[in-house]
Design a protein around this nucleic acid. Structure first.
Lengths: 204, 204
DNA sequence: GAAAAGTTTAACCGAATGGTTAAATTCGAA
DNA sequence: TTCGAATTTAACCATTCGGTTAAACTTTTC
């Protein structure tokens, strides 16, 4: 089938668009640049995705969707809460270290068009019910301090995401712009964030 | 002097540019829109700030500069650490709640042009030495657990900034897009963040 | 081998945008 | 009142950019 060729090109476009959009955002990206990155020409780019808007929406959906399931699967496991948290934090920090532009991209775009964001969430059926159920469970069982699970989730996300998201700034201000030192710092954080969380929620 | 008129217009421009740039970023902003927002015309806008780039740099510097000093003055006070932290967190969350686009703006732009960021930091002599000195003091005195002060500062910032920065997303996902409920949640967080931090660092 | 789909080339269009210019007008200061 | 700076008006320019088109070519499929 022509499918092999077609699919291949479509993938190349999606890959390229993802790279460019995440790095430069919707406004800062150029269709020509995406075509170049994909190794094709502008005409063909428009042949596959009629408009920039459509292409962007495709990318945003994919990126957004991709971030969540990867990180929620382990929640269903039968591991103790300590292990679950450890895995979650480690995976999240690793993911963001590999995709340094991702947080700024998401943050910018959710402010630019919250309506579209809402649509994406609804369409993909993304919701954190499972996580809450799990946390509530632990509280009921008396293994962790009782609190609003939204607070706890927020804290975990904040502590994991912020240091990677704000890297360019923090690296300059607190690490003399030393890249290696900051990378090491983030590696260590996979541990310290966990400890920090436990210090605050564990019942001793 | 004509200064009154001149200064007034310049201020109007800076105010307008700040509003537009913070909301839409460098790429998404239009000189015409800034002129409109300032209640003047495009010719006059260019008469004051020759290029968009120059105007943007002026704004970025100001915004960046403005965020820090406001929040570090109280560190010099003789209040106990509990009170200092409380004030800091409360002020920071309040500031961001009033300027919801600020974190995304800063985050986007520090990734877009880290070089310029470094220049701004250096030029304005912004550095967190004082904060570290204070934290180290508390550790030496045995009032808080010993740890890398950069970790602690990072945690405070993360817990304060993230929930406000990611508001559009979190409000939809965890609060059914109920604005009032989320505002209340953030108000409560001024307390809970403090408690969360203390639970993890205080020596009991 | 012919039809169809994929791809390139290259030119083009129209709108938006940053920036300029010149002339006229307003206005504050001396 | 006069001079110079501030401001407006309005047209204009060059460039960029998203998007289109048509013709030619290549590749795949049947």
């Amino acid at each position: 089938m022509s499918q092999t060729k077609k699919d291949n090109t479509e993938d190349k476009i999606l890959e390229a668009a993802k790279t460019v959009f995440i790095k430069k955002g919707m406004d800062g990206s150029r269709m020509q640049e995406i075509a170049d990155e994909a190794g094709i020409n502008k005409a063909l780019l428009h042949y596959y995705f009629r408009t920039k808007q459509k292409l962007f929406e495709a990318i945003f959906s994919r990126v957004f969707k991709q971030i969540f399931p990867d990180l929620t699967t382990f929640i269903r496991s039968e591991l103790p809460i300590e292990k679950k948290l450890e895995t979650f934090i480690e995976k999240y920090i690793t993911l963001l270290m590999k995709n340094p532009f991702l947080p700024a991209f998401i943050l910018k775009e959710i402010h630019r068009d919250p309506t579209f964001l809402a649509a994406v969430i609804k369409k993909n059926g993304i919701n954190p019910t499972e996580v809450f159920a799990m946390l509530n469970n632990e509280m009921e069982a008396g293994r962790i301090r009782k609190m609003d699970p939204r607070e706890l989730l927020m804290n975990i996300l904040a502590l994991s995401i912020f240091p990677v998201a704000a890297r360019p700034l923090v690296q300059i201000m607190l690490f003399d712009n030393n890249k290696k030192e900051y990378t090491d710092f983030l590696e260590r954080r996979k541990q310290t964030v966990k400890e920090f969380i436990f210090n605050s929620i564990l019942i001793k």
